[in-house]
């Protein structure tokens, strides 16, 4: 092989790897991205049932009902609209009435949000990021300054 051929072969290999990586990224983006919604978003332009999304807001005071099993029903509110949520599983430590929460799952035909994940990882203000943003826009929450999650 000449020097030129060698260089070309390396460039070709690099190009191939990059193309594969780019293809993977684009393909994954189509399938794995989850949009964040507030109850108001759901009320204004509801997503079709079955689409995965994240729903964030405050857990409405007095709305948490525990069934016999581990199914928990509660209402997520952003003070303007409310959305009923069903979740089967253990709620995270920081799950409290009146506190911020993000649930991931999909809407059922009857408009109930079926969550398969309720997020436990919050920043030190115990407020998930998207919720804090959404609520701040609505002027409900006056949380503290941005701080590090774990100072890394």
């Amino acid at each position: 092989m000449t020097r030129k051929q060698r260089r070309l072969s390396i460039i070709a290999a690099a190009g191939a790897v990059l193309a594969v990586a780019a293809g993977l990224v684009l393909y994954a983006f189509q399938d794995t991205i989850v949009f964040f919604n507030t109850p108001t978003d759901l009320a204004e332009k509801p997503s079709p049932p079955g689409t995965r999304l994240r729903l964030g807001g405050l857990v409405k005071e007095g709305s948490v009902v525990r069934d016999q099993g581990h199914e928990v029903r509660f209402i997520i509110t952003d003070t303007e609209h409310e959305a009923p949520v069903v979740y089967a599983g253990i709620l995270p430590d920081l799950f409290r009435e009146g506190q911020g929460v993000v649930a991931e799952g999909a809407l059922r035909e009857d408009g109930t949000f079926v969550a398969d994940t309720v997020l436990a990882k919050h920043d030190e203000n115990y407020m998930p990021r998207e919720v804090a943003d959404a609520l701040k826009e609505k002027g409900v929450w006056q949380g503290g300054t941005p701080t590090d999650r774990n100072a890394n």
Partner: peptide, 27 residues
């Protein structure tokens, strides 16, 4: 990407484990 998208369009998305599993592992 989520940060850029939110800064540009205001849409809030989350790119979680499924994305990284689909891209990182095959590589």
């Amino acid at each position: 990407y989520p940060l850029a998208l939110e800064a540009l369009t205001g849409a809030k998305i989350s790119v979680g484990a499924p994305f990284f599993d689909m891209t990182f592992i095959p590589l």
